[in-house]
Nucleic acid binder design. Structure first.
Length: 481
RNA sequence: GCCCCCAUCGUCUAGUGGCCCAGGACGCCGCCCUUUCAAGGCGGUAACGGGGAUUCGAACUCCCCUGGGGGCACCA
C-alpha cells in the first residue's frame, strides 16, 4: 500500500459496546497497526436525542481495556455540524439535494401503505421537483423542512468490497433520503461522507449491516466532488443463538460485563480475532503482536459467526494457565481473596494459588473456588452435599482417622497427605475422599484437599472436621448404605 | 413486497480444480493419570444444503433452487 493507511472506528454513542462493535474496532485496529497506519476514533453522535455522554466515555474505556488505543480523536461529530451543513448547502445549491416538506408521519404512513399494498416502500419523490412557488407555499404553512438527497434516477451504483468483490445495485432501487433533519441537524449519511473525505479515510472496515448504505454515502461523496472511493470491507455479522444479528436489544452483552465476569482482555481479544478470521498457520492462541503481524484484510471470511461462550471460556482458561505464577497471584488470586474479605496470607496460600490456576476459566470462578476460606461462622455445608457425600457408611471412622492424623502430623503438604490414613482403614480414597472435601470446602468438586487444609490451617481444618464428625453422631446411628 | 449479502463437522474455521473417502480448534464421548475437580496425554463422534453445467477430474468455477441473514427511518 503506497498511501498511508487511515481507518476509523465510528460507533454511535447510543448504547454500550458489545462484541460486534468490539470486533469491528479490533479489525480496524489490527489493519492500521499491521500497515503502520492511523487508527482514528470517531463518535457518530449526530442523533443528539439518542446520544449520551456516558456512552461516549464508556466506549472509550472499553476500547482501552481491550488495549485498542487510537491515534486520533475521539472526534465528535456533534462538534462538526457546521461542516456537514455547509456540505448540505452546497448539495442543495448544485441540485443534488432538495428541500422536502413532507412530515415524518406522512412519509411513514405512505411507506406503510406501500408495504400493505405490496409496493416497495421508500420515499416517493413528492417534493422532488417543487417549484419556487410551491416551496414558498408549503413553508408558509409552517411545515417543517428537511433536506433530502436526490439519488440518480437510473444507472448502477457499484463499489468494490475487499471481501465480496463488486457490489452493485440499480439506482432505481435506492430512494431519496434525508440528510438534514427538520431541526437542522445532519444525519449519518452526510456526516459519514463528509468526515471520511475530510479525514482522508483510506479503508472503511465495518459490519455487513451497513453494506446497503454504502451506495448512498458514495453518492454524496461523488456529488461533493469526491468520486474516488475508499476501500471497503464489510465484515460478517456476529450472530446470536438464533442466528440473528446481535444488537443492544437483541442478545448482545456489554463488553463491560465480560470484564466483570472475569474474562481477561487479551483472551477476549484473541477470541474476537478468530471470529471471521484465522491465522495462516491455523493456531488458536495468538498474541496481540502476532495478530498484528499476521492480520490481512483479505483473509477475513464472509459468513456470519456465532459467538461461542464455550470456546471463549476455554481460551480464557488457557490465558490464565499461561500466566507466570507470581503474576497470577498478584493480579488474580489476591484480588479474589480481597473480594471475599479474606486476608491474603500469600505465603500460606502459595500452593493453593498454584492449584487454582489450572482449575478456573474466569477470575470470577476463582472466587467461588476460594469461598471456603471465609471465616468459620460463614462456612456452611449445603444439605444436599451432606446427604450425598458425607452421610455415608463408615463416615465416622473416616473422620475419626482424619482428625487423629491432622492433630499430630507435620504441617506440610506431605505431612497432611491423608492417602495412607484412608487406605489404612481399608477404604478406597477415590470413593471416600469427597466426604472430606465437602467437610473442608463445602463442595465435592473443589480445589485439592491438602492444599486447602494447609491454607486453612490446623485449627480451622480440625474444627470443620470435628463439626462434621459431631453431626454424624455415633457409629451406630450411621444410615445403612 | 423490493434490493443486497452469505452457505464446509453442534460451534469457530482450513481448504482456492487433483496433495481431501476433507485438516485444526472448542464442545461432546471413551481411556490413561489421579486425594475430588480440573489440567495434561491418547483415542473417538461429527460437515462440503439440493440439482444441473464446465472439466479427464470438483468443497473449490458457472447457473438454478432451497435455506439463512441484512437493508428499504428526520437510527447508525
Amino acid at each position: 500500500m503506497v498511501e498511508p493507511v487511515r481507518v476509523r472506528f465510528s460507533p454511535a454513542p447510543t448504547g454500550f459496546l458489545h462484541v460486534g462493535g468490539a470486533r469491528t474496532a479490533l479489525f480496524n485496529w489490527l489493519f492500521a497497526r499491521h500497515h503502520g497506519g492511523a487508527f482514528i476514533l470517531r463518535i457518530e453522535d449526530t442523533d443528539v436525542a439518542r446520544s449520551r455522554e456516558e456512552w461516549i466515555t464508556g466506549i472509550q474505556q472499553t476500547l482501552l481495556w481491550l488495549g485498542l488505543t487510537w491515534d486520533e480523536g475521539p472526534v465528535l461529530q456533534s462538534t462538526r455540524f457546521d461542516a456537514y451543513l455547509a456540505a448540505a448547502q452546497r448539495l442543495l445549491a448544485e441540485g443534488h439535494a432538495y428541500e422536502c416538506y413532507c412530515t415524518e408521519e406522512e412519509v411513514r404512513e405512505r411507506n406503510e401503505a406501500a408495504r400493505r399494498e405490496g409496493r416497495t416502500p421508500g420515499y416517493d419523490g413528492r417534493c422532488r421537483n417543487l417549484t419556487v412557488e410551491e416551496r414558498a407555499a408549503l413553508a408558509a404553512e409552517g411545515r417543517p423542512r428537511t433536506i433530502r438527497f436526490r439519488t440518480p434516477d437510473e444507472g448502477v451504483s457499484r463499489f468494490v468490497d475487499v471481501l465480496r468483490g463488486e457490489v452493485a445495485v440499480d439506482w432505481a432501487t435506492v430512494h431519496d433520503f434525508v440528510i438534514v433533519r427538520s431541526d437542522g441537524t445532519p444525519l449519518f449519511f452526510l456526516a459519514n461522507a463528509v468526515d471520511d473525505i475530510d479525514m482522508d479515510i483510506t479503508h472503511v472496515i465495518r459490519g455487513e449491516d451497513l453494506i446497503d448504505s454504502t451506495h448512498r454515502v458514495l453518492a454524496i461523496r461523488a456529488a461533493l466532488g469526491h468520486p474516488e472511493q475508499p476501500v471497503y470491507a464489510h465484515l460478517p455479522l456476529i450472530v446470536g443463538k438464533d442466528r440473528a444479528k446481535l444488537s443492544k436489544r437483541h442478545g448482545a452483552i456489554a463488553l463491560e460485563d465480560f470484564r466483570e465476569r472475569g474474562y481477561l482482555p487479551e483472551a477476549l481479544l484473541n477470541y474476537l480475532a478468530l471470529l471471521g478470521w484465522a491465522p495462516p498457520d491455523g493456531r488458536e492462541i495468538v498474541s496481540r503482536d502476532e495478530l498484528i503481524a499476521m492480520f490481512e484484510l483479505d483473509d477475513v471470511n464472509r459468513s456470519a459467526a456465532f459467538f461461542d461462550y464455550d470456546k471463549l471460556d476455554w481460551m480464557n482458561g488457557e490465558y490464565i494457565r499461561a500466566m507466570p505464577l507470581d503474576r497470577f497471584e498478584r493480579e488474580i488470586f489476591e484480588p479474589a481473596l480481597q473480594r471475599l474479605r479474606v486476608a491474603p496470607e500469600l505465603d500460606a496460600y502459595h500452593a493453593l494459588a498454584e492449584a487454582a490456576q489450572v482449575r478456573i476459566t474466569t477470575t470470577k470462578d476463582l472466587e467461588d473456588q476460594l469461598s471456603f476460606l471465609v471465616e468459620e461462622k460463614n462456612f456452611v455445608i449445603p444439605d444436599d452435599e451432606w446427604e450425598r457425600v458425607i452421610a455415608t457408611e463408615r463416615a465416622q471412622e473416616l473422620f475419626d482417622a482424619a482428625i487423629r492424623h491432622l492433630e499430630t502430623c507435620e504441617w506440610t503438604h506431605e505431612g497432611i497427605n491423608l492417602k495412607s490414613t484412608v487406605e489404612g482403614l481399608g477404604l478406597k480414597p477415590r470413593k471416600v475422599m469427597p466426604a472430606l472435601y465437602v467437610a473442608i470446602e463445602g463442595r465435592a468438586r473443589a480445589l485439592p484437599l491438602y492444599e486447602s487444609i494447609q491454607a486453612l490451617g490446623r485449627d480451622r481444618s480440625l474444627a470443620r472436621l470435628r463439626r462434621a464428625r459431631e453431626r454424624l453422631g455415633a457409629p451406630s446411628e450411621a444410615p445403612p448404605a
